[in-house]
């Protein structure tokens, strides 16, 4: 049996908004550690890994490990019915064919429950190896979202290059080219506005902007994003979910023949 209660229900609403366009159906894994998900997009180019740790919930009970297959579009429809200030409770059973979402208004004067049908999903878990990254860039999530959006109006791919000069985002398309360089900047009023570049060695990789733009849907979850790059490895774009865990997107680089 799974029973979890999340006082900050808006977090779950934001999580769904940040994965539903990338992944149609996914298994949520319930364990004593927390509520998690690993899923690939339909073309198997990107992978999303979500963890909401049990300690982040006001109440968390999971008697045994099990998975619940959900259509994320349908789950998003249900969660959109929760108010931003609502407390969300999720209840499910191992082997059950439905999951219940309960929404309580902060003043407890409105209580709603929605029951959603579960589905059987054949999903494969991938082993994500521990990697030493050549470069790790931490920057404001809104800035990264802006860069991806701007570049995608010019080209389809972005080359992300990290050198000692900074991190460069480049694209080219039919109408021309664009280069945006962000330098390390730690002299800011708030730590979340800083751009921090840790570079072991220079790295340059090419990615499809369509996926990057999709990842930036997670920006409302965190003021900062961390981009980890290594030659010939998938990039990791990570948004921390305060007090609870993370959402990590992995994207395979494009490779020259």
């Amino acid at each position: 049996m799974l029973e979890l209660r999340l006082v900050q229900g808006s977090l779950l609403k934001k999580v769904l908004e940040s994965i539903k366009d990338l992944v149609n159906d996914a298994n949520f894994d319930c364990s004593a550690t927390g509520f998690s998900l690993q899923a690939m997009d339909s073309s198997h180019v990107a992978l999303v890994s979500l963890l909401l740790r049990s300690e982040g919930f006001e109440h968390y009970r999971c008697d045994k490990n099990f998975s619940m297959g959900m259509n994320l579009g349908n789950m998003s429809k249900m969660l959109k019915c929760a108010g931003n200030d609502d407390i969300i409770t999720i209840k499910g059973d191992d082997g059950g064919d439905t999951i219940t979402f309960m929404f309580e208004s902060p003043s407890q004067d409105k209580i709603a429950d929605f029951e959603m049908k579960l589905m059987d999903i054949d999903s494969e878990h991938l082993g994500i190896p521990e990697a030493e990254y050549h470069a790790i860039v931490r920057m404001p999530s809104a800035e990264f979202a802006r860069i991806c959006k701007d570049l995608s109006s010019i080209g389809d791919t972005v080359i992300i290059s990290v050198t000692k000069e900074g991190v460069k985002f480049s694209t080219k398309g039919d109408i021309g080219t664009a280069n945006i360089v962000c330098r390390q900047n730690t002299t800011v009023d708030k730590p979340e506005e800083a751009t921090i570049i840790e570079m072991q060695e220079p790295v340059s990789l090419t990615f499809a902007l369509r996926y990057m733009n999709s990842f930036t849907k997670a920006s409302p979850l965190s003021n900062t994003v961390t981009i980890s790059l290594s030659s010939e490895l998938p990039v990791v774009v990570e948004y921390k979910i305060a007090e609870m865990g993370y959402i990590r997107y992995y994207l395979a680089p494009k490779i020259e023949d």
Binding site: M40, S43, H44, V45, A46, L47, E124, H125, L126, G127, I128, P129, T157, T206, A208, L233, P234, Y250, L251, A252, P253, K254, I255, E256, D257
Partner: peptide
Amino acid sequence: GINQPTITKFFAKL
């Protein structure tokens, strides 16, 4: 040309 490999090329199925 430039190719888009799948993520399974990098991460093995468990």
